Amino acid sequence: MHPFHVIVRPVLSEKSNGVREAQGKYTFIVQKDATKEDVKKAVAALWDVKVQSVRTLIQRGKFKRRGARYSQTSLVKKAIVKLAAGSKLPIFEDQ
């Protein structure tokens, strides 16, 4: 997969920012068919950093109710990327 197609967007939340500051782990929303190796290559190619490990998870969609109807939001695949010691991503550090 092309690096621009693997990573959909970064996750910017209080929890992900806390993990990033404390442990140096960055969280991204990725394509559902992307593997750990695809994510590792994409982060290394896009930001020229060394990736130490990648963990992935699939967040199931939540059930929503509007009146008498139920629907379910889409499932999302997330990747938590740990960089080598001393490495940082500039897109997170500028905020």
Rank of each mutant, 00 (worst) to 15 (best):
K82Q: 12
P90W: 13
E14H: 06
Y26H: 04
A68K: 13
F28S: 01
K64V: 14
A44R: 10
L46T: 03
A68D: 11
M1W: 06
G61S: 06
V54K: 03
T35A: 03
Q95E: 14
A85D: 15
V51T: 03
K82S: 08
S71W: 06
K41A: 14
D94I: 14
S87E: 15
R69T: 09
I29V: 15
S53Y: 10
Q59D: 04
A22E: 12
Q59W: 00
A79E: 03
Y70D: 10
V6M: 04
Q59V: 03
R69K: 13
V8G: 00
A42Q: 05
F63V: 15
H2C: 06
W47F: 15
S71A: 08
V43Y: 09
E93Q: 13
K62H: 02
Q95V: 14
A44C: 09
R20S: 00
V81G: 05
L57K: 06
V30W: 10
R65S: 04
K25S: 07
V43G: 04
V11A: 03
G18C: 13
G67C: 14
F63W: 13
S87A: 14
R66E: 10
K77V: 02
P90N: 06
A85Q: 15
T35Q: 05
P3S: 05
K50V: 05
Q23V: 07
K78A: 01
K36D: 07
L57A: 02
R20P: 04
D94L: 15
K88W: 11
N17D: 11
T56A: 02
F92V: 03
F4L: 03
L83H: 06
L89D: 06
I7Q: 00
W47K: 13
Q31Y: 08
K36F: 09
E37V: 14
K78S: 02
A84T: 13
F92I: 04
F92E: 02
K78W: 02
A22H: 09
A45H: 12
I91W: 13
Q95W: 11
L46P: 13
A22S: 13
S87K: 14
S13F: 12
A22N: 12
P10H: 03
L75E: 12
L83M: 07
K41F: 10
F63S: 13
A42P: 05
R55G: 02
V76A: 10
K50H: 08
V81L: 02
G61C: 08
K15Y: 14
G24H: 06
Q52F: 11
H2W: 06
S71V: 07
Q72D: 06
P10I: 05
D48N: 15
E37A: 12
A84K: 12
V43D: 05
V39P: 00
K78E: 01
S74W: 11
R69Y: 10
V39Y: 00
G61N: 08
V54P: 11
R66D: 10
K40D: 07
H2F: 10
P90I: 08
K78F: 01
S71T: 14
F28E: 04
V30S: 01
K77R: 12
L12Y: 08
F4I: 00
K62Y: 07
V76N: 08
M1C: 04
D38V: 04
K78I: 06
E93C: 09
R69W: 06
